[in-house]
Nucleic acid binder design. Structure first.
Lengths: 215, 215
DNA sequence: ACTTTAAGTATACAAGTGTACGCTGAAAAT
DNA sequence: ATTTTCAGCGTACACTTGTATACTTAAAGT
């Protein structure tokens, strides 16, 4: 049986991508990986790498894109959970914590490259996080009726805090995980409540609006 | 004139430390520096490095400690400014933004090693940030009268947001800096207000307490 | 005055890196 | 049936890295 050439190429490309993800860990950042190391892990010759990516940066940006896909799947799961539980905040935080433990490599990548040395990487990660922020901002805007700008500022703060709680979660013992989750939930509730107090004056004439931000 | 041997050694040690800081930039993280590179920048032979530090990790931890000193000086400046301006939040955020632009290298180090691959580094940075958090938590506790645990959760959220705003500030054009600062201030005000709303119920019997968290 | 100590150096080596060059073999195009 | 294309490989080269060993030399200790 003759395999399609393009199919074979795609297969090798996957080998490289998977190898790179496999090499990421708490002790190993993407920027510390060498081309030869990735090739070795993928089971190909160093030079074969160039048939698929210009250089390590191009591979890295591809990984960030793939990470973004995983993040958006996460969002879908979180949305489902919000419908089930009713509380946006705790559902989101808990879903995110589960994600970090099920796909730590993706999180390592995003966490570190977000503040890394490559502008291209920082922008790529930032773009992926914007999906989260915009989606959350929309939700806030719809349920709370805040102006778009204010909703986004609030959403951004929330995403940053959840992200940071995730980073802490990687270092902590499983026993402390719940405590950490609760802390993040509390912090997000402060924000939700504070924003509500600040903004309810501005929409006092509008009479619809449910005034509480999280049950 | 004969110079004291210990003095000379200390001088060379400083050369190394300063060289390492000088090499840090938006494009260069500490973990990407090589021993030889630092030695070259310091103007000494590679092997001389070992007369002062066991390895690059030890030097790095020293840099974090020095960064901590800079941070605590910053806190002092912020405290002064709070007295002058009256608003804790805007004074703190603005002081921090100025710090980032006057000592970017220190900030690069703390920002990246905070989520880096070395547990020792992460702990060291975390310890330095705790000074900030504890100090801010004390202030909140004293002025607002919240329980210590709640004050700390609030302080932590605030420090994380300011830190992240700082990271964004490094990438943005000077024109957008004010906008970014204002955003962070707004986020911190949400937290302060939200925490106040959540906690004022609990201290309803106490009659002293000024209820507003920021002027 | 002599010896000891130790900061700084020069040389050297093994290991790892990115990548240029040329080849192979099989799939695709003609 | 013949030619072209191209994914993957082997070899090679110039570099950089950490660090071991052995040295110099001037300060400190005796």
């Amino acid at each position: 049986m003759t395999v399609n050439r393009a199919q074979q190429k795609e297969k090798t490309r996957r080998l490289i991508i998977d190898a790179a993800f496999r090499l990421l860990s708490q002790e190993r950042s993407y920027s510390s990986l060498s081309l030869r190391e990735v090739a070795r892990e993928a089971g190909i010759a160093p030079n074969s790498f160039y048939r698929h990516f210009e250089d390590m940066e191009e591979l890295g940006l591809t990984l960030v894109d793939e990470g973004g896909v995983a993040l958006r799947q996460l969002m879908r799961r979180a949305r489902q959970r919000i419908r089930d539980e009713g509380s946006v905040i705790s559902a989101s935080v808990e879903t995110f914590m589960e994600f970090i433990h099920s796909s730590p490599q993706v999180f390592y990548l995003l966490l570190r490259e977000r503040s890394g040395t490559s502008m291209a990487f920082r922008k790529a990660v930032s773009r992926e996080l914007q999906y989260f922020i915009v989606e959350l901002a929309d939700y806030i805007q719809q349920t709370q009726g805040y102006p778009a700008a204010d909703a986004k500022i609030q959403a951004e703060a929330m995403v940053i805090l959840v992200f940071n709680a995730g980073a802490d979660a990687l270092d902590c013992k499983p026993a402390e995980l719940k405590q950490l989750t609760d802390k993040a939930i509390t912090q997000l509730r402060y924000i939700a409540r504070g924003a509500d107090e600040f903004l309810k004056g501005r929409r006092s004439e509008s009479k619809k609006s449910a005034s509480r931000s999280d049950k």
